[in-house]
Design a protein around this nucleic acid. Structure first.
Lengths: 330, 330
DNA sequence: TTGAAAGCGCTAACAG
DNA sequence: CTGTTAGCGCTTTCAA
């Protein structure tokens, strides 16, 4: 089943079928109708390979991400995929987790095979070589959640978000605030934990306070739990904890409970993310919307591919207060 | 940069370059060496589109799944992707979540564009039309975690796994066991909850016991929490709960705590999955290994594409006992 | 083992 | 608006 058969059935040329089906070039309504009917009748679907070879367009977007087992990443992926599939694009997944060899393969081989029209890079911290590889593709490229030199990136302002979270605690009257942030490993891989730490520090300082503690963790529930145990077990127990992610904040809530502390009366806890389980835990948080970020990234690419102006790209986040934060006990 | 330039640089024909680079057909070691050097030198990478058009092979596998925000699915995806990328295959993601229109598009359009050499279908319950569409592709197809009529599927035996979990509780001496399984919605979408419920019922019956309760939930933490609250709040409180998933079991553990019950002394709790957080919660569970399931599915496809015999496809699972299960209080 | 050459199926100038 | 035609870049017979 190829374009020629459809052409024959519709009594037109291959070119006209191509035009009618792709929407590129003009075809009279009547002819279009006939072509569509014939294609439908025959169950014809265009061969991507042939189309790509001839046009240079793949109708395929690559999404590169560092892990698949974190809520944020899968949300971005889902949001992007949804938007792209709606516009007729495939999504090819490049998961960088694992040893470095995977990374090399992706950058040295896969991305170069002219398999994609554009790339979405999620939370990637790339070395110079990788960045230049990406640029060398000469394809639209947008980042989500991690800055890539010279590439438009969608991400919340981590420092501001952290500042907002901390501010919320301070405005409730807390003066003894601790922070659970990234550990050495996550600091090395991502800028985000460092920025959030800075936002925390800035808010503390502006309020004329001094931080009551910092413990690094690995952005998991268990890591947050351990960190909180450490923080809350100290003699000078702080009355509030700002965790750099919701998952760690969940851990902190569980730790507080295990220590016999009441949240929020003995200790207020806030996170960042807007994780679906935050509601269950009653966690106040700075919600970001990774799904929308992914969708937005897709829209920017789509606009780029269509040659139209990119949509605005502010990345919203907002404070959501629940029952995990309150005034400190007098 | 195309094959001809490499051919010229290496002083051979296009055909020889193709053979040397693809490994198909014989090339003398010396020539191969020269071709590889030239290709490397020039930074040549084959054009997928041209290769596909000419050979009919896409080096691309489609993975179709119902959600992206469940641990099980992303693990399968990651495992499959990893294995495939190692063999030079791309993975194109088809996420069916959302309204039915997405589904239609995927089955009516995307999968038919000859974009994939094979398909992995994860936890899909397909209607007849979808199944026939898939079969009509004439491509290797393997399912993971959900049976598709006429398709080789990798999945644990849910009834046996549930039986094992229940048996574990019974062998500890529990005689009053409740089950948290799927609610109407999940029962409608998947067979799995029903099979696990049957395994539970069978084990109970074999032991000459009567089930002490069943509550349906939605396979989330919160759902498990609510269900457990209901179960544990009843006057005839059971001493053990078998939850159909680890996430729901986590919820049950939290519910027990909130009710002032000690796990495992007042109530033993077991799940199914082997979720990474199970260790943190001390949850006994039937661990399955979705990542391996994904990898194994990829291997089966790869074998199919290579025309070799498929690897064995038992799907292992095992009881992992932690601190959430113990003998009932005397 | 190697080369020549015929496609694979579609798109996009170009001409009409 | 529509048809003709020349590729797109690679793989694969077929011959040598």
């Amino acid at each position: 089943m190829n374009i020629a058969e459809v052409a024959r059935a519709a009594g037109v040329s291959n070119a006209t079928v191509s035009r009618a089906l792709s929407g590129r070039g003009s075809v009279s309504p009547a002819t279009r109708e006939r072509v569509l009917a014939a294609a439908n009748e025959l169950g014809y679907v265009v061969s991507q390979a042939a189309s790509t070879l001839s046009s240079g367009r793949t109708r395929n977007v690559g999404v590169v991400l560092p892990f698949l087992d974190k809520w944020f990443f899968t949300q971005v992926l889902a949001g992007a995929q949804r938007r792209l599939v709606d516009s007729g694009y495939d999504v090819t997944l490049y998961n960088l987790e694992g040893d470095g060899s995977e990374r090399r393969t992706v950058f040295d081989d896969f991305l170069l095979r002219q398999r994609v029209d554009a790339v979405i890079a999620v939370s990637l911290e790339l070395d110079e070589n990788e960045v230049s590889r990406l640029h060398a593709l000469g394809k639209p490229l947008v980042g989500v959640g991690g800055p890539i030199p010279g590439v438009q990136t969608l991400q919340i302002d981590d420092a501001v978000a952290a500042h907002l979270a901390t501010q919320h605690l301070i405005s409730l009257g807390h003066t003894s605030l601790a922070h659970i942030g990234g550990d050495e490993a996550s600091d090395a891989d991502f800028h985000m934990p460092i920025k959030r730490r800075r936002g925390f520090a800035a808010a503390i300082e502006e309020a004329g306070l001094r931080p009551a503690g910092f413990v690094g963790a690995d952005f998991t529930l268990e890591g947050g739990y351990r960190a909180a145990k450490q923080i809350l077990g100290s003699p000078e127990r702080p009355t509030a904890i700002f965790a750099a992610s919701d998952e760690m904040a969940f851990g902190a809530i569980l730790a507080a409970r295990d220590l016999g502390l009441l949240v929020p009366h003995d200790v207020s806890i806030i996170g960042i993310d807007g994780h679906p389980q935050a509601e269950f835990f009653g966690l106040s948080t700075i919600a970001q919307y990774p799904r929308r970020q992914g969708a937005r990234a897709a829209e920017i690419l789509l606009a780029g591919l269509a040659g139209s102006a990119p949509p605005p790209s502010e990345v919203p986040f907002e404070l959501i207060t629940r029952t995990s934060t309150a005034r400190p006990r007098p």
